[in-house]
C-alpha cells in the first residue's frame, strides 16, 4: 500500500505546531510509528484515517487522495479499518452487533452475510463464546480483539491501530498482538502506533520515529533499532531499556 504525504502539517491552534512540514513516500505493508508521548503519532494516524483534516499538505493512501469534504471523507473512511486505544466499541451493542451493524449499514451486507462474517471472525480471534456480551462484560484484551475484528470485517485496504495495547494489563497485551501478527501473515497491511518495541521490531517491516512533530527517522525495523541515526532516537531507545528486566 503506497502512502504519501507532501508538505503535511497540523496545528490545532495558532501557537502549537503539532506536525511540522512532513514529506514521505513509500510502499508499505506493515509500519510501526514510535516516539515519545505528545510527538504527534495519534494526530498523524487520525489524519491518515480521515478522522482529522491536515492544516496543509497532501496525503494519499494507495493512490487515493485524502478528500476534504465530509461526504467524500466518509467514503474514504469506509475503505479503512481503525482501532483505538480504548473505548472504541459501541457500548450499547454486543460484540456481535458491533461487527454486524457497520457491515449492514455501511457495507451493504445482508443480515445473514454480516452474521456469518462476524461469527467467523469472533471464532478466529478466540471469542466464539462471547458474541452476545456487551463491551463492559469483556476484558480489555477481549474488547480490543473485538475492535480489531470490527475493523477488518469489511476487508479494508489498510488497518490503522492507535496504541491498541497500551490500556491493557500486560497479560492481555500478547493476545492482542498475536491477533495483529496473524493478520499480517494473511497479508493485511497495517500502520500501528505502539510502545511495544519488541512488536515494532519483529512484527513490522518498517518503523517511523516521530518526535516533537517531525519524522526524524524512517527505515527497516531490522536496522533502525540497531543503528539509530539521531540522538533523539538513541535517547528514546535507551530510556525504554532503563527498566528492562533482561538487562
Amino acid at each position: 500500500m503506497k502512502i504519501e504525504f507532501q508538505g503535511l502539517t497540523k496545528q490545532y491552534d495558532q501557537e502549537h505546531v503539532v506536525l511540522k512540514p512532513m514529506d514521505f513516500s513509500d510502499d508499505i505493508h506493515t509500519l510501526a510509528i514510535i516516539g515519545p508521548s505528545g510527538g504527534g503519532k495519534s494526530t498523524l494516524l487520525r489524519i491518515l484515517g480521515g478522522l482529522l483534516l491536515p492544516t496543509s499538505g497532501q496525503v494519499s493512501v494507495g493512490g487515493e487522495e485524502l478528500p476534504t469534504d465530509e461526504r467524500a471523507l466518509q467514503k474514504y473512511r469506509q475503505g479503512l479499518g481503525f482501532v483505538f486505544q480504548q473505548g472504541g466499541l459501541f457500548r450499547h451493542l454486543s460484540a456481535m452487533e458491533n461487527i454486524t451493524l457497520p457491515l449492514e449499514q455501511v457495507h451493504g451486507y445482508t443480515k445473514q452475510e454480516a452474521a456469518r462474517r462476524a461469527e467467523e471472525l469472533l471464532e478466529r480471534f478466540g471469542l466464539g463464546a462471547d458474541g452476545r456480551k456487551k463491551p463492559s462484560e469483556l476484558s480489555g484484551g477481549q474488547q480490543q480483539r473485538v475492535a480489531i475484528a470490527r475493523a477488518v470485517a469489511a476487508r479494508p485496504r489498510l488497518l490503522l491501530l492507535d496504541e491498541p495495547t497500551s490500556a491493557l494489563d500486560p497479560e492481555y497485551t500478547n493476545e492482542v498482538l498475536d491477533v495483529i501478527h496473524e493478520l499480517k501473515n494473511e497479508g493485511m497491511d497495517f500502520v500501528i502506533v505502539t510502545h511495544e518495541m519488541g512488536f515494532a521490531r519483529h512484527a513490522c517491516e518498517k518503523v517511523a520515529f516521530l518526535c516533537e512533530g517531525s519524522l526524524l527517522e524512517y527505515g527497516d525495523s531490522a536496522s533502525l533499532f540497531v543503528h539509530p541515526k539521531t540522538r533523539q532516537l538513541e535517547r528514546f531507545l535507551s530510556r525504554l531499556l532503563e527498566w528492562n528486566v533482561s538487562e
Partner: peptide
C-alpha cells in the same frame, strides 16, 4: 470516543 468510533466505521451523521 463513541462519536469518533462512529465516524471511523464510516457512519454518516444520520446513521
Amino acid at each position: 470516543s463513541q462519536l469518533e468510533a462512529a465516524r471511523a466505521v464510516g457512519f454518516t451523521r444520520r446513521q
